[in-house]
Design a protein around this nucleic acid. Structure first.
Length: 862
RNA sequence: GCCGAUGUGGCGAAAUGGCAGACGCAACGGACUUAAAAUCCGUUGGGCUUAAACGGCCCGUGCCGGUUCGAGUCCGGCCAUCGGCACCA
């Protein structure tokens, strides 16, 4: 038959009905301290989603996975009596939104407004219980006013190494405050993406391509705004410890920060060929302190094995030390390296290349002359842009030394079963005069002490983390609240915030590196002698503090009021954000940047805790039905609204949670949705039946009777399991338990109302619409959202008789039923009386009997 | 190469060191129906035994070892897949 598929229950009518009621009654509005209806007696719970970029494509099934999980928690905590903060907003500045605007030829203001409207409609159709009165949009002047204000706090601060805290720049005693500001301008080799027409942060470049769009990225020196995140490297690292985050995310951040401990060592340059002084000879043994090369190493204990040095080709000192006859070779090599993109440079990493500079350095520990080379396997961006080559104990150095026939000297003895040449682990020092016989860790200490005593080295720590490149040459972002006067930058007065971008017709990137804002000639001109900064902030700026704004979104006096901040983000209660759920893709971007901003704000006294997100959970990616990543290319993308059209929002929500563990990657299955939909229909038919006229009426089986003993047991077992499972975010097994509950009642001829009350409240966070409707149809008191979460009584879970497992030599042989209070001796006797046990023992002698009360008896034979 | 995660039926998955596979999907059988859909009931890890049913027995959580009365779970060593970083000195 071609007629429309019959709905198993009328979700298409009742779901919009309840969504409207929730809106109209402000059912999920959370008042702030001091506001009407605020109850200070209740504990708070802040449960947050990573707010989306409202892209043109709309929601896909991945978004609602985390959102459903947080919604269940929010509704559950409300039923427990918590004051719950559960907000949603829009991260609408940035490349995706702007690329979409360019593609469709519309102004980003217009596309953003449309996309936000679309996202909001979709989210509402899924029935999420957000407090929409707290909705924020990073592109609202009322919001980015405070993003700019926070930038000024950062700009007007420095990191005091004594206190290890950010402090107002006024406490800095040096000559030039611009040298130490947490926001500064520097000429740096940036990641320039010609296709996007902007520079990108290191974190936004993946395999030499832009994270957004996958376009090639090249290195290019440019003057840019930087944020001094490196000053906070140790705190960002150390304070990860106390956070309730997945180990994998902590590991990613640790890895990204990349702290390594070692020593900095000075190698004087011997025989400097100085183009300004033709008299200097190559054979001079004079140590020339004017040209000393500093290296960083994590293995100072291998210093005696350093048989050459390598500089990064970009290292400026190369110009100073290269000898006349090597000038051409060095220049050629440097040109060749410069023409390679980062991608090519790593791609071609298979074979080592390099050139001798003609110069020599003196190994400070043994006065040996060692040749200085340049090679692109040494990076200018890490350490000092120079290394000591210890080929015997470093795989890269060994490869290089073999290729260019440089000497190799063993200085670490490997453990007996391993070859010492090429051994890179910790062993025992050899051929190292001062260090011979010492295990590597002690050798490190001793040689570093020696270097410090002789003034030629020191303990040193290096990080992979670079300062955050914070400016972009794009239109759709926050303008910097900065003006330029006589070549110097200064802060825009706070009273002039928000600084709105000019209304440009043509907002496309210029392609030259000049920002689009430069096209707005009137806007740029600030005064007779001053002009505005034309760069804009990156996408991440707005998301670095949005969780704070949610606490007090309307405040026009402060970025967040002190009292709401103290209440929701700290105060006497644990956690800042108590639960934060989102995708793993933000492990080193948003989550690192936001922690950094938060620490600056904390140091300056603007927020009450040093860390913003106490507990973090990553939802796993949802794959297409074919097991591949969802993508237009494979045609396997699922649109939530299509699913809701057929099965309803409740079924959609429950399926998203029933698929498997929240954090796991898992494939979508429409058949699976159907199964969950059948479960909800069974819940419906427990309470409702269809009359002759085809109307749903309350079933006569539902009666005000006492549950049977067996029913009591399953009710209390379900309350217990669902409660525990929600607490541990094991939503899939919570749903399983409710299925067991429903299956048990499906066949009952009398269904106690009390059992249905408990079920509906338990199921409400998962399937809020159907449970609200059934609650109303049962004529139960008040709204279901105003109920208290049921409690269980252990008393109902125990039985008089229990089943005991009987094993022989650890193998299950039979199960016996005994009284709950049976003694160990009684259990043992019962086990030995069992025929199967007797058979299995095959007449062998008993060696041992293990009795676990209420569980099992295990008989061990000889 | 380094770091992290994962490995259980045809599929998604469950299992405080104590009955492996709950719950759901798919499949098969049955009831209801003129028929189908929907719904309800039942079977369903593999193998052997038995005419069949009942029953009985053996094997089984990536591989190899270990600890334990007892291991999917704990320990050691491998293998595979996925994710991140990657010439980081």
């Amino acid at each position: 038959m071609s007629s429309e598929r019959r709905k198993p229950y009328p979700f298409d009518r009742l779901e919009p009905k309840w969504q409207t009621i929730w809106d109209e009654t402000r059912a999920f509005h959370a008042p702030n301290p001091g506001e009407e209806k605020f109850d200070p007696a209740q504990p708070k719970f802040y449960v947050l989603d990573m707010f989306p970029y409202p892209s043109g494509a709309g929601l896909h099934v991945g978004h609602p996975e985390g959102y459903t999980a947080t919604d269940i928690i929010a509704r559950y905590k409300r039923l427990l009596g918590f004051n719950v903060l559960h907000p949603m907003g829009w991260d609408a500045f940035g490349l995706p939104a702007e690329q979409y605007a360019i593609k469709t030829g519309q102004h980003p203001v217009v596309t953003t407004r449309e996309n936000v409207a679309k996202f909001k409609t979709q989210l509402k159709r899924i029935g999420f219980s957000y407090d929409w009165e707290r909705e924020i949009n990073t592109t609202d002047p009322g919001y980015y006013k405070w993003t700019q204000w926070i930038f000024l706090q950062i700009y007007n601060s420095w990191f005091n190494p004594e206190t290890k805290r950010a402090e107002p720049i006024s406490t800095y005693r040096g000559d030039d405050p611009d040298e130490v500001r947490l926001a500064y301008v520097a000429q740096v080799r940036v990641n320039w993406c010609p296709e996007l027409g902007t520079v990108l942060a290191n974190e936004e470049v993946i395999d030499g391509k832009s994270e957004v769009g996958g376009f090639p990225v090249v290195r290019r020196p440019m003057r840019q705004w930087m944020l001094r995140i490196t000053a906070f490297a140790d705190r960002l690292l150390d304070e990860l410890e106390g956070l309730d985050w997945p180990d994998s995310i902590k590991a990613l951040q640790r890895n990204w920060i990349g702290r390594s401990e070692g020593a900095a060592i000075e190698f004087p340059v011997a025989a400097v060929y100085d183009r300004r002084n033709e008299d200097t000879t190559n054979d001079s043994e004079v140590r020339d302190r004017r040209y000393s090369i500093r290296v960083f190493t994590t293995r100072p204990d291998t210093l005696y094995g350093a048989t050459y040095m390598v500089l990064a080709p970009e290292n400026p000192i190369v110009d100073q030390i290269t000898t006349e006859n090597q000038l051409e070779a060095v220049a050629n090599y440097r040109t060749q390296v410069a023409s390679k993109s980062d991608l090519e440079r790593t791609d071609l990493a298979k074979e080592k290349t390099g050139v001798f500079t003609g110069a020599f350095a003196i190994n400070p520990v043994n006065d040996e002359r060692i040749p200085i080379w340049i090679a692109d396997y040494v990076l200018m961006g890490y350490g000092t842009g120079a290394i000591m080559g210890v080929p015997a104990h470093d795989a890269r150095d060994l490869e290089f030394a073999r290729k260019f026939d440089l000497p190799i000297r063993l200085v670490v003895q490997a453990p007996a079963d391993q070859e010492s040449l090429g051994f890179v682990g910790l062993g025992v020092a050899i051929n190292s005069l001062l260090l011979d016989g010492l295990p590597s860790p002690e050798a490190k200490q001793k040689i570093t002490d020696w270097l410090e005593e002789h003034g030629v080295g020191a303990r040193s720590i290096n990080y992979k983390l670079r300062d955050w490149l914070f400016s972009r040459q794009r239109y759709w972002g926050e303008p910097f609240p900065v003006i330029w006067r006589d070549g110097k930058h200064e802060a825009l007065p706070e009273s002039e915030l928000p600084l709105e971008p000019p209304a440009l017709e043509d907002f496309k990137p210029t392609g030259t590196g000049e920002p689009p804002l430069a096209k707005a000639k009137d806007w740029i001109r600030y005064s007779e002698h001053a002009t505005r900064e034309t760069n804009t902030m990156p996408q991440w700026a707005g998301s670095c503090w949005y969780y704070l704004r949610f606490c007090d979104p309307e405040n026009d006096k402060r970025f967040v009021g002190q009292e709401p901040e103290r209440y929701w983000m700290g105060g006497d209660q644990p956690g800042g954000v108590d639960l934060y759920i989102g995708g793993v893709e933000h492990a080193v971007l948003h989550l690192l940047y936001a922690r950094f901003w938060h620490k600056v704000l904390f140091d300056l006294g603007h927020v009450s805790k040093p860390e913003p997100f106490q507990r973090l959970v990553n939802q796993g990616m949802i794959l297409g039905e074919d097991g591949r990543k969802m993508s237009k290319r494979w045609g396997n993308v699922i649109d939530p609204l299509d699913v809701i059209e057929i099965y309803g929002a409740d079924a959609f929500r429950c399926y998203e949670m029933f698929m498997g563990p929240l954090e796991q990657m898992k494939p979508w299955s429409m058949k699976g949705v159907e199964g969950v939909s059948r479960f909800l229909a069974r819940v419906w038919r427990l309470i409702m039946r269809e009359n002759q006229a085809g109307e749903w009426v309350r079933s006569a089986a539902v009666q005000d009777v006492e549950p049977t003993k067996a029913q009591q047991k399953i009710i209390h077992a379900t309350v217990k399991k669902v409660t525990a499972d929600i607490e541990s975010l094991s939503f899939n097994t919570a749903i399983s338990q409710m299925m067991i509950f429903v299956n048990a009642f499906t066949t009952a001829d009398k269904i106690p109302v009390s059992a249905m009350r408990a079920l509906l409240v338990l199921l409400n966070p998962f399937a809020p619409h159907i449970t609200s409707e059934l609650w109303e149809r049962l004529n139960l008191d008040g709204a279901i959202t105003a109920q208290r979460w049921p409690e269980y009584d252990e008393h109902f879970l125990v039985e008089d008789e229990i089943e005991i497992v009987v094993q022989v030599n650890g193998k299950l042989r039979d199960k016996i039923t005994v009284a709950l209070n049976a003694t160990e001796a009684e259990l043992e006797t019962a086990a030995f009386a069992n025929q199967k046990v007797h058979n299995a023992m095959a007449g062998k002698a008993v060696r041992k009997v293990v009795v676990v009360p209420k569980k099992l008896v295990n008989i061990v034979t000889a």
